[in-house]
């Protein structure tokens, strides 16, 4: 792979007494969507949280756009150009939708043109602009969470299960937003349990098992190889 935007080399992460990541080696190509797949509990969320810095890597290195960010604090990683959408969405429920978005514009005021674009991608945000974010539905919160990450240009987006528990119509909106990001040349590392969504969005794939990456390749290859899916993730064609 030529000039990846993100490289993890031998990353180990402990959470309390548990050894969760056991030497993750991963490269995320510049531009496009890399799917991080695997069964529940294999370390996908921990990998994203280690990249953004919420968990400290016990050993190994994390390199972003050619710079070693392993020792950087979380805000410095975000300011370097990494956007993070956590599994729990991280919405500030007592703040309005507007305040959530204003907060997301770290480097200055919210750009009106970018906001207009976000309203076309996520119309409910405009409808509920002044409403407390805590009163939004699950799908609307997820839209806000992703819109917040998109409020400023980021070079890499880490997105953790954006379609979890959402209705098909909302999943379609999410997929549309991620395609739009991809079209603009952003790099995305996406954890996703919904294999249909993963197939539709992913360019490359990394599959995890027991805290390690056990397979990397093209989504086109994985999507058409049922035996490989079964072997890597216990998926069968009937399941999707």
């Amino acid at each position: 792979m030529s000039d990846p935007i993100l490289t993890l080399s031998g990353v180990h992460t402990d959470i309390a007494q548990y050894h969760i990541l056991e030497g993750v080696d991963l490269q995320v190509p510049r531009g496009g969507v890399t799917m991080l797949l695997g069964r529940n509990g294999v370390g996908k969320t921990t990998t994203l949280r280690t990249i953004i810095g919420h968990w400290k890597a016990k050993s190994g290195t994390i390199s972003f756009d050619g710079s070693d960010i392993t020792a950087l604090p979380v805000p410095a990683r975000a300011r370097a150009g990494i956007g993070f959408v956590p599994e729990d969405m991280g919405i500030f429920g007592d703040l309005s939708v507007e305040e959530n978005m204003v907060l997301a514009a770290v480097s200055g005021p919210l750009d009106p043109a970018r906001l207009d674009w976000l309203f076309t991608v996520f119309p409910p945000l405009k409808t509920f602009w002044k409403s407390p974010a805590g009163t939004l539905s699950g799908g609307q919160k997820q839209m806000l969470s992703i819109a917040r990450a998109m409020a400023e240009d980021r070079r890499l987006y880490l997105i953790d299960e954006p379609t979890k528990g959402l209705a098909p119509a909302i999943i379609s909106t999410m997929a549309g937003a991620l395609r739009e990001l991809k079209r603009q040349g952003a790099s995305i590392l996406l954890v996703e349990q919904n294999f249909s969504v993963a197939k539709a969005l992913g360019d490359t794939v990394a599959v995890m098992e027991n805290g390690r990456i056990i397979w990397t390749g093209e989504m086109a290859q994985l999507a058409t190889d049922a035996a490989l899916q079964e072997r890597l993730m216990g998926l069968s064609m009937e399941a999707h």
Binding site: T120, V121, A169, I170, T173, A175, G176, A177
Partner: peptide
């Protein structure tokens, strides 16, 4: 550009 499906919450 991707627009959301009709959704009037």
């Amino acid at each position: 550009m991707s627009a959301a499906p009709d959704h009037t919450p």
